[in-house]
Design a protein around this nucleic acid. Structure first.
Lengths: 232, 232
DNA sequence: CGTGGGATTGACGGGCATCAACTTTCGTGG
DNA sequence: CCACGAAAGTTGATGCCCGTCAATCCCACG
């Protein structure tokens, strides 16, 4: 790894609170790789050879079954994926592909498992990361089982708008097709759901969205902390 | 805690590979509690004061939203729950109630967090447990998003039959109502789905089930390791 | 033996997927 | 920079999966 990369990598949230010397020794066995968009980075069922950390770009985590496919989540810089498979030395449960060109830090699974045993701070960082990911999936499962498509969309809009600073405006950060899959519906249903939000003063043009009546949308969405609060 | 209990607790899978002395010091701050059936053990949204480990009985993990409720999972002896909330010192995302009378080991959250920092073996045990739970939820999310009700039922039957030793027979271990919720459908739909499996030679009487044509059921269910294999 | 909750069955409606046609957007190369 | 083709997105028609409400049945329990 180049020295310049090395400086950048140690800023990653995964290494927060971990001794600089130890981070460096970890990174010695790692490398940074660039991938073009739409390339499959990992495939479900494959043995977990690496822990991946996104440096640049967007990565779609998805899974397939028969001829179906669904998006589990979309991750960005700083996020890591497939910690659990690496830690347990099992196969990946999900696949991943870049939605944009990406730059990815790849840590050999062996080194990560050793790191967990050798450095308590790194172990903690890994565990915290995994715990957060775990809670994320639990929330998503609740979201799926307890809400209708329209409710999921409404809540997603509110959450996304808050992530962007509660300005009343937001940008859909990827194709509607991907958003539909993430929300667990067919693309056609997303289109219709969007149309169904017009009475709530939701104005969608392409990827640009304006929420003109937050109260109305909130009364439809009814967000709760235990599903929607990312800090919860 | 009574000395007799103490002997029993250290056998728990959560303490596997952890030094006996350390387990004992952990258990000193813990206690074992009996609860009658149907009592709510933890409620979503409450701060995570304890890590719970089931010693005896069945516990339903569930979550509510508006007037709806869904079962996330049903756990038995040896399983622990809500590790992630304890580790992160956040609120519980799910509620739990006993389906039967239960005996539960309660470890103060503070002690667990300290334990994670102090004892590498315990940290590993916690992380492994959490990783397994994480992968469980991921599988369940895939199950929900990629399969129809009937497919979920068929796969559940096969998995349950294999858990019981592939004898072609199995017992539904709790109310059909709970099973329906776990599988993500209304109780009425479960009834109908069961009826729909008659052509596949599935014979259900009360809680007793016989699978008389495994091949036929398999061709309907189409299980895959990355969703259905518990050892995966 | 009566009572109440679980389970089943029927009727009905709505949510959502699918297929198809059409429009729009976007990336690519001329 | 524009033109073109392909992919994404929208809209309509249709049907099924599944949830809801209600009535009935069944069993476990007191």
């Amino acid at each position: 790894m180049r020295d310049e990369d090395l400086q950048e990598m140690r800023q990653l949230p995964l290494f927060e609170g971990v001794g600089a010397a130890y981070v460096e020794s970890l990174l010695r066995s790692a490398f940074v790789q660039r991938f073009p968009a739409h390339v499959e980075l990992v495939h479900e069922g494959d043995p977990a050879d690496f822990l991946y950390v996104i440096v640049q770009g967007q990565v779609e985590i998805y899974a397939g079954y028969r001829d179906r496919e669904t998006t589990i989540s979309v991750l960005g810089p700083g996020n890591s994926f497939i910690i659990a498979a690496v830690l347990l030395d099992r196969v990946y449960l999900k696949s991943a592909r870049g939605l944009t060109p990406t730059r990815i830090l790849m840590l050999p699974a062996e080194a990560v498992r050793e790191g967990f045993a050798e450095d308590a701070h790194f172990a903690r960082a890994l565990a915290v990361d995994m715990a957060l990911a775990y809670r994320g999936v639990v929330k998503e499962l609740k979201n799926q089982k307890l809400r209708s498509s329209l409710e999921r969309l409404a809540n997603w809009l509110i959450a996304e708008e808050e992530k962007g600073g509660s300005t009343g405006k937001l940008e859909i950060p990827y194709d509607k097709k991907v958003l539909a899959s993430r929300l667990g519906m067919a693309p056609e249903v997303l289109s219709r759901s969007i149309a169904a939000l017009i009475p709530y003063k939701v104005d969608i043009r392409g990827r640009h969205v304006q929420l003109n009546d937050r109260e109305a949308l909130l009364s439809l969405a009814r967000p709760v902390p235990t599903i929607d609060d990312p800090a919860c």
